[in-house]
Amino acid sequence: MALTKAVMAERLFEELGLNKREAKEIVEMFFEEIRNALENGQQVKLSGFGNFDLRDKKQRPGRNPKTGEEIPITARRVVTFRPGQKLKARVEAYAGTHQQ
C-alpha cells in the first residue's frame, strides 16, 4: 500500500511521541512549505533525498492525441524532481520484478 500523509503522521506519533494533532499538522506543513517555496520561485534541496527544481518551458506545438488536431502547448512552469545520490543508490538496489 502506498505511503500517505496519514501513515507518515502515524510514524511521527509512534516514534517521536508527538501527539496525533501535532503529527498531522507537521506532515501537512512539511509539504505545504515545499509547495510555498516552489511557488515563490525557490528550488528546494533536501540533502539525502533530492532536489525539486523549477523550469520554464516555452510554448511548443502539440496535438490532441484523440482527434489528431494541432493545438499549441502553452508556455508553462514545471517542477522536476532530481533524486539525490543516496536515494538513487537505495532504490537501485531494489530487486523487485518489474511488470510490463
Binding site: 507518515m8 510514524r11 517521536l16 506532515v27 512539511f30 539525502g48 536515494l87 537505495r90 531494489y94
Partner: peptide, 13 residues
C-alpha cells in the same frame, strides 16, 4: 520529524 519523514519516504521507495 523532518528527518524521520524523509527517511520514511526513502525507505518506502
Amino acid at each position: 520529524a523532518v528527518k524521520t519523514m524523509l527517511d520514511h519516504m526513502g525507505t518506502t521507495l
